[in-house]
Design a protein around this nucleic acid. Structure first.
Lengths: 336, 336
DNA sequence: CTGTTAGCGCCTTCAA
DNA sequence: TTGAAGGCGCTAACAG
């Protein structure tokens, strides 16, 4: 029962191992009768080709490396979900690399990825910086392993295929919604850590504010609720009365802000309108429900995997930047 | 640059490939000077052993298969995080299998796992049923590939190593807290789908209620917010006034319930006390903050991976059931 | 349409 | 302490 090899199948089916290999990989090259016989034996023996031997001989692994930061971020998990669904269509398996805090070993890790013979790499670390981008580029060129960035942007260059939404535009639009409400003192709540996508949201916000000749106010805080709650309380003390609008780069930050303000006696959205980003479950579980930019995160994952598959298959993708459509969802934290 | 093989290293270091292999896998069997020289060349060439060749020859993959349902569930993502951290300690890579809705192909998928030569399997699908359990067992026995269940319980048998918490006890304790508050009409909100762990929480709830000679009320609903909101509204119409306590099997369900009730004018926790399960970010982002059972989900993942590693290394684990400690966290939705 | 024959890159006895 | 040689299970020309 343990392990049937291609030899066992060949023997029992009365053919050579090459024929077995063919019926599995190039069925059209095998006469139907032979093929059927072989398939029956395969079934009987519960034979599955050894992935290592197959990979070694064919130099292809039918697997892709998925590189993510901290899984506990809702958007990351959802992205992986999207990738998984698409990957299954191609029978590709996913090798998961979680970066976690320690960027130290990223170079080392990428070498592991190469050694693992992954057919392609899906990189979704939105904290990407110039150095990392350069390294990915090197890897793609030196080792000829295709890379796709999912929900990860490095806007200063476009050598790598990228799937994302137009974060600048989204930030711009959300801010304009608040301006249209008549809000004047609109704050942007962003992360202290450097996320490229958040910088773009911020740039969109700044543009909208400048266009309206309003003053920009950017607060850098943490994604950690206990930490940002403290920040929000301080903010309230200093200038709380003047805030009448907020754009947060993550839903969870928006919700944390809302909670803090409501506990301070503020009315949402009467006193302050709030926009989040992503449309995660946090947005639906907030009270009032959070207005936010809806990002098709599942689709981004799926699209990224689909493009990677094309690259693996040797198709050239001239459209490097693939921008998916986003929506502005108005719920209970803004005034329609 | 492309790919250095063991031959290149051997040549450049002036040794045979066997020596290179040894310095990597059995360094103590190589004279220090030779070893250093080889290591230097490895460094220079950026050599990494091809994972396929290595796996084929050694019959070990230093990778484990991680089987999960839907990644978008916060607890699942966190579990994977825990696994990833621990796996990195051993330099194990993770092959991710997302079950998603379609259980249809689970048998097939498990065959893939075996074919992938994973050294072990981490199974964390809390919807496990008898059939699946039996199949896992078969796989473990027939193919000699160790399996560990993480946060997944099949309480009717104990052939597979399991890491979890005592869900029965947790349900019992949480219910008793509410009873101690003087609550009489305590409802359990659980999932319509069959999750073994939720059944245990439910059993604990029932036991506590029976002990206190109170009537049990079990509501089966969905994890989907739009769906369960409808249920909660109906519930309120029928018997809303009589509900004074709730235990929900997931934080997100608890929060959704709270939102619905507060919108109906109920006071939380004055009118109704609420307990959730897990202590996810949802609990901290709810207003009031959710009281809940704290489950050390990260630790469960890490512990499961650690045990799997032991099994892979041939250590026999007699302690099949590994029960980690949980806490009851009282925050704003219960009365202390 | 099918069989034969080299490898793929590495590990692992067995000798030396 | 090191080298030589035989696989691991499969794919992919090349013949036939």
């Amino acid at each position: 029962m343990s392990k049937a090899t291609i030899y066992n199948v060949a023997l029992k089916a009365g053919v050579s191992l090459a024929t077995v290999s063919r019926t599995l990989n190039n069925p059209e090259k095998v006469k139907k009768e032979t093929r059927d016989r072989v398939l029956r034996v395969i079934e009987e023996l519960g034979y599955k080709p050894n992935a290592f031997a197959k990979g070694l001989a064919s130099r292809r692994s039918t697997s892709v490396a998925v590189i993510v930061p901290d899984m506990s971020r809702s958007s990351i998990a959802e992205l992986v979900n999207g990738v998984a669904v698409e990957a299954r269509k191609y029978q590709y398996s996913l090798i998961l690399y979680v970066l976690k805090d320690e960027n130290r070993g990223e170079t080392e890790m990428l070498k592991d990825v190469v050694a693992s013979q992954a057919d392609g790499i899906l990189y979704m670390n939105d904290e990407i910086n110039e150095e990392q981008y350069a390294m990915l580029n090197t890897i793609q060129e030196d080792y000829k392993v295709p890379i796709v960035l999912a929900n990860t942007l490095y806007p200063y260059d476009n050598k790598l295929v990228t799937v994302c939404i137009d974060y600048f535009k989204a930030g711009y639009e959300a801010t304009n919604k608040l301006i249209a409400e008549g809000r004047k003192n609109i704050y942007m709540l962003t992360t202290a850590r450097k996320y490229m996508v958040n910088d773009l949201k911020e740039a969109g916000y700044i543009k909208a504010m400048k266009d309206a000749e309003l003053e920009t106010n950017i607060i850098r805080t943490s994604g950690d609720i206990t930490v940002n709650t403290v920040h929000f309380n301080e903010l309230f003390k200093d200038s709380g009365k003047k805030i009448d609008g907020v754009i947060a780069v993550r839903d969870s930050i928006a919700v944390s802000f809302i909670n803090t303000m409501i506990e301070k006696g503020k009315k949402i959205p009467k006193d302050i309108s709030v926009f989040g980003f992503q449309n995660t479950k946090y947005a639906s579980l907030s009270r009032p429900k959070l207005s936010c930019v809806d990002i098709p995160i599942l689709d981004i994952g799926a699209k990224a995997m689909a493009l990677l598959k094309k690259e693996i298959d040797g198709e050239h993708i001239e459209q490097k930047f693939n921008v998916l459509h986003h929506d502005i969802i108005e719920r209970g934290t803004t005034i329609k």
